[in-house]
């Protein structure tokens, strides 16, 4: 158990040398490798964290964007709905107007058709009435009726307005030789004198008068003075009914 000073001092030096050797050839390289690896791991972790944070940020952004998109979609949907509703209302209004017009048009057409039908029926009725009256009056007509009609003509001629009288006078003065008197029956001399006297007095026409018989008149007279025709017979009266129906 002796203490050898050489061993003591050499052992101190040896140990210090060993500390130096291990420090430079063992601890330092190994610790450097460990530190490098830790730094790489930390860097990787930091990168991963950054990526994770970025991913979370992106996720948040996407969530927000999705929310915005959803909001925009709802807004657009509402706008579209409103637009559709407005368009529908507009179309409905246009349709209503069109329908109203069509209805009015249809009503007008119907009215017109009814009017046409009514008019046709009226015309038919008048024609039939005239035809019936013509048959009846043809059967009932005779010289007596014609004389009455002639008298009635003379009275009517006297009751003409001055304007009408003047027009007839002008027509008679332009064509004094074209005065034709048609009658259904042959007029006797008395009737002819009364008629000529009335025409001369009222219209200033003195003849010559051409008398013709026309059975189609049924009864009564027709006097042609130039372009004028004075009618006082049943045929023209019946015809005037039909014409009246045509004229409305």
């Amino acid at each position: 158990m002796e203490l050898n000073w050489s061993t003591f001092f050499l052992e101190i030096i040896n140990f210090l040398i060993l500390v130096w050797i291990l420090k430079h050839f063992f601890y330092k390289p190994v610790l450097d490798v460990i530190t490098r690896r830790r730094m790489e791991i930390e860097k990787t972790l930091n990168d991963a964290k950054v990526l994770h944070d970025d991913a979370e940020t992106l996720q948040e952004q996407y969530k927000n964007r999705l929310g915005v998109w959803e909001q925009e979609r709802l807004t657009a949907q509402a706008a579209l709905k409103e637009e559709i509703e407005a368009e529908r209302t507009r179309q409905m209004e246009a349709l209503q107007i069109t329908l109203k017009k069509e209805r009015e048009k249809a009503q007008a057409i119907e009215q017109h058709q009814l009017e046409v039908c009514r008019q046709q029926a009226e015309e038919t009725a008048l024609a039939q009435g005239a035809q019936f009256a013509a048959h009846l009056l043809t059967a009932a007509a005779g010289p007596e009726l014609e004389r009455h009609l002639s008298d009635l003509f003379i009275q009517e001629l006297a009751a003409l307005s001055p304007k009408q009288t003047e027009a007839l006078r002008a027509a008679g003065s332009k064509a004094p030789d074209r005065i034709q008197i048609s009658s259904a029956y042959v007029l006797d001399d008395t009737a002819r004198q009364l008629l000529e006297q009335s025409l001369s007095t009222t219209l200033g026409i003195n003849g010559p008068f051409h008398y013709t018989q026309d059975k189609a008149l049924i009864a009564g007279l027709r006097i042609n003075v130039g372009a004028w025709a004075l009618r006082a017979n049943l045929q023209d009266e019946l015809k005037s009914f039909v014409d009246f129906a045509h004229d409305g």
Partner: peptide, 14 residues
């Protein structure tokens, strides 16, 4: 070496 008191003393002194 550690069964030598000189060596252990050196280490203890260190």
């Amino acid at each position: 070496p550690t069964r030598d008191l000189s060596a252990t003393s050196a280490l203890a002194i260190l």
